[in-house]
């Protein structure tokens, strides 16, 4: 185990749970987890990464969206034990060296939120969408962001923010896209 590995043992139920290794925002965690712990609860309750939000807990809102090996998923419906060995990126892991991710910058510049509750999920989802590379028009962005609901109705500015971030990437400010789905 390297120095950066953390051994987290938080409840007796977990002490005899499954051993799971996850890299979260670049940091490796060797964990023992009961199989019913969802990825969302692991992130929020055990690793104290509360940026990822719980909206519905049933796959219906997208507030819990994170990247699993670079692919966006609803963390509320993922059992953490099943993602053993994966790299997880949450909203806390997008900035690099104190510099916000271009999607985060664009959300601020375009004022793409009101209360902010859906925003971490929106941002992770937008990063996933850009990597997937299937959205080219505002209409396609809207459709492929439909898995993220916003109760404040900030949709118009969210689309504008993603268009801005996509434009910056097209001009070569972003590293090459990774394939989706794998």
């Amino acid at each position: 185990m390297s120095d950066t590995e953390t051994l987290t043992r938080l409840s007796t139920a977990d002490a005899d749970g499954e051993s799971v290794t996850l890299t979260v925002n670049g940091e490796r965690h060797a964990l023992r987890l009961a199989p019913w712990v969802t990825l969302l609860d692991l992130l929020r309750e055990r690793l104290h990464l509360t940026g990822t939000k719980k909206g519905c807990d049933h796959g219906q809102c997208g507030a819990c969206t994170v990247l699993v090996d670079g692919v966006r998923m609803n963390s509320c419906l993922q059992l953490a034990v099943m993602r053993d060995g994966c790299e997880i990126t949450t909203v806390e892991g997008l900035a690099e060296g104190g510099r916000l991710h271009p999607v985060q910058e664009a959300f601020i510049e375009q004022d793409a939120f009101q209360c902010g509750y859906c925003t971490p999920g929106q941002i992770c989802s937008a990063v996933g969408l850009i990597r997937e590379g299937h959205a080219h028009t505002a209409e396609e962005i809207r459709e492929l962001m439909s898995g993220n609901l916003c109760r404040c109705g900030a949709y118009t500015n969210i689309v504008a923010a993603i268009e801005q971030a996509m434009g910056e990437q097209a001009m070569g400010e972003q590293p090459a896209a990774r394939g989706d789905g794998r």
Binding site: G62, R72, M73, N74, L77, G128, S146, G147
Partner: peptide
């Protein structure tokens, strides 16, 4: 069907 996140899983 569903959403992009759900279809990814």
């Amino acid at each position: 069907g569903a959403s992009p996140q759900l279809r990814n899983a």
